[in-house]
Design a protein around this nucleic acid. Structure first.
Lengths: 131, 131, 131, 131
DNA sequence: GTGGTCTAGACCACT
DNA sequence: GTGGTCTAGACCACG
C-alpha cells in the first residue's frame, strides 16, 4: 500500500488520513472494484499504527459504501466505489483549497502575495511531488 | 474586533484560531505596539466562547512575545509584535497552502485539474472577499 | 512518584511546581528517555489536584521538549530531556538562591548574619534531608 | 525612598515587595519611630505604581502595627516598629533561605553542588550588592 | 475593570 | 486506558 501517514501534532486524525488516502487510491484507479484491500492487521503493521485506528477507518469506508466486508475474505472495493471516490476526491480537495484561500484572504495578506505564495508552492509541489 | 471563529467541528482548536487571528490582526496593522488588545471577557463574550479559552490563547500569544500582560490593565502589543506577526502570518499561510497542494498532488488528481481548482477558488475568493 | 505539592498558599502555581518537580525527577535520573511519565489522571489523583492542572503542567513540559505526547499512550521522556533538565535544574536553583540572597542583602541584614543564617539552614537541611 | 520594585513575571506581588522593603528599612534604622513615611501619592508616583497598590501595602503595615495613621499628617513609624521589624526581617529571610535550600535538596542536586552554588552567589552578591 | 489559577466535569480522538 | 479541548464558575492579585 502507498499510504503516507503523518502522526504529527496538528494533522488530521490518522483514521481520517487513512480514509482519505484510500479514497484517493480508488479514485485514481489504484484499486478496482472487486479488489481486496489489505487487512486491518496488515495495514496496521505497515503503517505502525494501532489496529483499532485502521479498523475505524475501514468502518468509515464501509459507511461510505466504498468497500464492503466479504465474510472470511476481507474488505472488497465495491462496484460503485470509483464513482463515489472520484466525486469525494474532488469535493474534499476543492473544500480544502477554498478553506485555505479564505483564511489567506481573511489574514489581510495582500492578494498578490497570496497568488505569489500559491504559485510558488504549486511549482514546488509539482517539482518534487511527495517526499 | 473582527474574529471569525468556527466552533470546533473538526477544525483547529478554538484557542488556536484566536491566536492566529490576533496575529493576523497585528500583522495587518489593526493593533499597534503599545495598545491593548480586547480583554479576555470582552472577546469571550463576542466570540461566544468561554473566557478560559480566550485566556489560553492569550497565554500562547504572550509566549510568542506578541503581547505582554500588564497587571490589571490588559494585554499590550509589544514593540516587536509587528515583525513577529508578519513573519508568522506568511509562514502559517504558506504552510497551509503547501499542505493542501501536497495533499492534492498525493490524491493523484491531474495537475491541470488542481490548477483549475486553485484558479477557480482564487477567483471566487477575490470576488467576494469575506463572507 | 514523589512529588510534594504545597497547595497554593502564596507559593508558586501548582502547575509550575509540577513542572519543576518533573524536571528535577528527570535531571536526577528518575525517568529515562523513552519511558512514560505517570498519566494525568494518576498524577492528579496522587497529588489531590484537578487533572486539568496536571494537564497544563504537561503542556508546558512538552513545550520545553522534555516530554512528548504519544497518542493514546502517554507522555514520553525525550532523548534530549536529561540534558535539558539538568541545565534547567541548575539554572532554576541558582536563580532562586540568587534572589533570596539579593533580598537578604537588600534588607541590610549584616553580611555575617546572612552567612550565619545560610550556614544554619544548610546544616539543618542536610541533617534531615526531606521532611 | 529607596525601594527597588521589580514588576516582573513571577515575582512577589508589588504591594508585598513594598511591605517587605519598608520593614527592612525600619529594621535597618533608616526610619526611626515618629518619622512620617512618604504619602501614598508620592510613593506611587516615584515607584510608577498604582496608588491603590501602595495604599494596600500601607494597610498591611498598619495591621502589623509598624506604622499608624496620624490624622492630617500621614503615616508615622510607631515606637514598637524597630523591634517588630527586626524580628520580622530575620524571620522572613530565614524562611526564604530555608525554602530555597529545601527545594534545592528536593531537586536531588548533590549537596556539594548546592553548597557551591550558594557560595558562588553569596560572593557575587557581596561583590556588587544591589544593582 | 484586568489577567491568572484552580476545580469540576464533559466530550473527543486515539491505543 | 491515554492526552486534548472545552464549558462553567469560583477566587485571587492588581489597577
Amino acid at each position: 500500500m502507498f499510504l503516507d501517514i503523518r502522526p504529527k501534532k496538528n494533522d488530521y486524525p490518522i483514521y481520517e488520513q487513512i480514509v482519505s488516502q484510500v479514497i484517493f487510491g480508488i479514485a485514481s484507479g489504484l484499486y478496482e472494484p472487486g479488489t481486496l484491500i489489505p487487512s486491518v492487521r496488515e495495514l496496521a503493521l505497515q503503517l505502525q499504527v494501532h489496529p483499532n485506528t485502521v479498523a475505524r477507518a475501514f468502518q468509515e469506508l464501509e459507511r461510505l459504501e466504498v468497500v464492503e466486508s466479504k465474510r472470511g475474505r476481507g474488505m472488497e472495493v465495491t462496484a460503485r466505489a470509483p464513482v463515489i471516490c472520484s466525486a469525494k476526491r474532488q469535493e474534499k480537495i476543492r473544500e480544502r483549497i477554498r478553506d485555505v484561500l479564505r483564511e489567506a484572504v481573511a489574514s489581510a495578506l495582500p492578494a498578490d502575495e497570496i497568488e505569489q505564495l500559491v504559485a510558488d508552492e504549486l511549482r514546488r509541489v509539482n517539482g518534487k511531488p511527495l517526499r
